[in-house]
Design a binder for these strands. Structure first.
Lengths: 218, 218
DNA sequence: ATCCATGAAATACAGCGTACGGTAAGGATG
DNA sequence: CATCCTTACCGTACGCTGTATTTCATGGAT
């Protein structure tokens, strides 16, 4: 069985999942596949095309979201699959928004998203749809990026609070004790208990409510 | 006059502005400063700390936003300064959301943002503030990233439409002609005339309206 | 039996971050 | 005055990166 773009992408994804994008290199992928480094260039122009391949492979998983009859349910399904994918493949969030996603599966996801969003009450014409899509995508990209970043720092500083205090703590504590950042200090002290998934969902519905022009029910 | 962290950061910003983050390297910065590459490591642990320095230098510019009496005006001023900074230093958007921004100026901006947002009608307690801040930051990061990415592709494919047709055109046109992405096709064809700044402002107010629970007035 | 195309490998190059060791000047201390 | 120690500075070297180029082997067609 010869090499293929799919097999290369799969190997690259395996490595990136394990060691991040920094741990990814042509030589490591080739090693994983048991071939010489240059073999990959028979299937891919350069590594940025390889990254595009990896991204679209993830979009393929996202595209499997089942469409609902209600636009909002469809949208939520897509968005949550995207979040799951970003948390499963953290490198995905590093690439999010960094280059245009034009692969076939990315386009399919974009199509489903746009189609669902076009049914929302607030969007009446193409311009509305364009803007709403932009707002949703922007929120999604930013939210996933920050959530992954928080995960990484939480992981690297250690699961327990003592290690965190030791590494990031001194600098931040000193900074907050200057009294120049009272609101931030309150956020750090009192606001650390919020669940990430819940916050994500809350903000997502807030944004959708803003798009559809709905009033907050609470 | 000896070297300094500020001078190194300024040189690095100059290079990154001109040639992007890929065109940035220890040797080039040192060359710009007329010193040996290893000199930098007397002032900086590694290049990721250098990136943090650069980011905080940009936040220093953003922090100069004048506070208004109205929370919304204050917020808009900060956000617009951030957008201006991201468009002036495109590499800034590459770093946005990719690591925690804990520099003194970044903290100052975060403080101003949080203080302003805490005055918004919709936010009643710290949890509300935490969430609202997360939503705003997520939108900001995602919106700036995609806007910069669009700028880059528009620039690289050429200002005129013919060059765009020649490079990205064939693949995308072929894809859209398959009929599998009708909504995306409509967006690409009919929705390309929207102004980026206007879209940004529109979506920003949409989000803020969603946070404060205000109804759309149109 | 010879030629040629095709698949695979090896080699090479410029550039990267950075570890390490060494040098020259100047101010403090004996 | 002589010594020391700090500070600013420089050069070399290592392992790694993406990728261009060149070589090699092999198997089918003529």
């Amino acid at each position: 069985m010869p090499l293929s773009r799919a097999k290369i992408a799969a190997a690259a994804i395996r490595i990136a999942d394990a060691h991040g994008l920094d741990g990814l290199s042509v030589r490591k992928i080739a090693g994983e596949l048991g071939v010489g480094p240059m073999r990959l260039y028979d299937y891919v122009i350069n590594i940025s095309e390889l990254l595009d391949l990896m991204v679209d492979a993830v979009y393929a998983q996202i595209a499997e979201a089942a469409p609902h009859s209600e636009w909002r349910a469809t949208l939520l399904a897509i968005v949550h699959r995207t979040r799951d994918a970003a948390l499963a493949h953290e490198w995905f969030s590093d690439l999010l928004g960094g280059r245009p996603h034009l692969g076939p599966h990315a386009l399919a996801v974009g199509e489903s998203t746009a189609a669902a969003l076009s049914q929302a009450p607030g969007v009446r014409n193409i311009d509305d749809l364009q803007r709403a899509l932009g707002a949703l995508n922007a929120f999604l990209i930013g939210a996933l990026r920050t959530e992954v970043t928080e995960r990484r720092t939480a992981r690297s500083t250690g699961a327990d609070v003592t290690a965190w205090q030791a590494s990031r703590g001194p600098y931040l504590t000193r900074m907050l004790e200057t009294g120049r950042y009272p609101t931030v200090a309150r956020l750090v002290i009192d606001g650390a208990h919020l669940d990430a998934a819940e916050t994500f969902n809350h903000n997502l519905t807030t944004l959708l409510d803003g798009i559809t022009g709905r009033v907050k029910d609470s």
